[in-house]
Design a protein around this nucleic acid. Sequence first.
DNA 1: TATTGTTATACTCTATAACTATA
DNA 2: TATAGTTATAGAGTATAACAATA
Lengths: 154, 154
Amino acid sequence: MTETSPAPTDHHAIAAGLEGLIGLLRVLSPSGGPSLTTASTLHRLDTAGPSRLSDLAAGEGVTQPAMTQLVSRLERQGLAERRGHQQDRRVVMVHITEAGTRLLGQRRAHRAAALTRLLASLPAEDELSIAAALPALVRLAAMASSGSERWVRS
Amino acid sequence: MTETSPAPTDHHAIAAGLEGLIGLLRVLSPSGGPSLTTASTLHRLDTAGPSRLSDLAAGEGVTQPAMTQLVSRLERQGLAERRGHQQDRRVVMVHITEAGTRLLGQRRAHRAAALTRLLASLPAEDELSIAAALPALVRLAAMASSGSERWVRS
DNA sequence: TATTGTTATACTCTATAACTATA
DNA sequence: TATAGTTATAGAGTATAACAATA
């Protein structure tokens, strides 16, 4: 075999591996806190900046009405706020607030501490390979965020 | 800098990176299908074999009552079944059924296809680094599964 | 007419508290 | 008395369908 690109089977393996990450993500989250989708949405607002409501919905893989309610909850808790769009008045731009950024920081600190404890029990190479793959995973997640529903969802 | 182990800041970066994966996981899942936790639980049953209900709850980061209901739903759909434990009759062992394994395979095929489309837009190195990190991520998830609530949850 | 977002409604999923059965 | 699991209840989160406003 002299192929330069991995066989399709590898994608199957990656798909199976990703499946097990949900438990990890949930276990790493503080128990009383916001849901995984809420946290992910805040993370997106923090990273990508103010976003259209429909883009948020597509990026998180939920419907527009679900995102409407999620943003309403965030707004009620003071973690985000709606603002209008100058050119197109149909559009709602969602902004993260200072309190939202703060909450995100707390969650990350909590998760980082939990990760430190977890990683201490694993070989050092594991940490290195995970750290090495992180930018790629972030790019992958970003790919999925942009116009994904057109070709990913069933 | 000649340190051999990564600084604590790296864990913070990993924690932040993992935060964005939820959207990816949801987008990669078929819309009408079971929830992320349901899929993750089936995956665990398929990988680790028959498990105690309480272990499933701890591994998925949900409460025991939530797992009771999740297992009841799985049972109603014929994807898993409860069996007794010989030594300790308080214990419920959860087994995946053939139909459960089949559903898991379908989901994985769906995800793998979506991944193939996504990865096609990224540099080949990204795919390689993700594939390389996968075993480590699986081990990390497995670490989190076993007795995690004692030292991870807040 | 098409797009953006919201409202209405029903259902799934989850947590807390109280309970039963077994150890 | 402690542990494994269930039941009861309430609330969060989600989807589909129907709607309003803007382009």
